[in-house]
């Protein structure tokens, strides 16, 4: 396996874009910043399976986002988190 671009604990931003094709990033998570909770394996890219073979495969990361960062009116604790799998091509380094 190739080395991962992002490492556990790193802050990453989920891209805020909406390609007009099947993709697996829910709108509520787009544009938000979280930390890498876990580095996962390489998987076929959903956008490239429509009349394609999903290749080249991309790495998935689990990203942990504080709920209070996702929802302005969030009713819960500062420790409440959302964790979501995001493909590498949807992530960029965040400060």
């Amino acid at each position: 396996m190739t080395e991962s671009t992002f490492v556990v604990g790193q802050r990453v931003r989920i891209a805020d874009r909406t390609p007009p094709v099947h993709h697996r990033v829910p709108s509520y998570a787009k544009g938000h910043v979280g930390i890498v909770e876990r580095v996962c394996g390489l998987h076929g890219v959903p956008e490239k399976f429509i009349r394609g073979d999903g290749k080249p495969r991309q790495r998935i990361y689990r990203v942990r986002i504080p709920q209070t960062e996702l929802w302005q009116d969030y009713d819960g604790t500062d420790g409440d988190k959302l964790e979501i799998e995001i493909f590498e091509h949807w992530l960029e380094k965040a400060e």
């Binding site: 697996r24 990033v25 829910p26 509520y28 998570a29 996962c40 394996g41 998987h43 076929g44 959903p46 998935i60 689990r62 709920q67 996702l70 929802w71 969030y74 009713d75 819960g76 604790t77 420790g79 409440d80 988190k81 959302l82 964790e83 979501i84 799998e85 995001i86 493909f87």
Partner: peptide, 30 residues
């Protein structure tokens, strides 16, 4: 994803403030 505590309460799970919720959105290959 947005109101986990009130949804869990509908299932009878009342979480106190000393318990943090982690919601896992299974969106891809996991």
């Amino acid at each position: 994803v947005r109101e986990p505590r009130s949804v869990l309460a509908e299932f009878g799970v009342e979480l106190t403030a000393d318990v943090n919720v982690r919601v896992h959105d299974s969106t891809a290959e996991l």
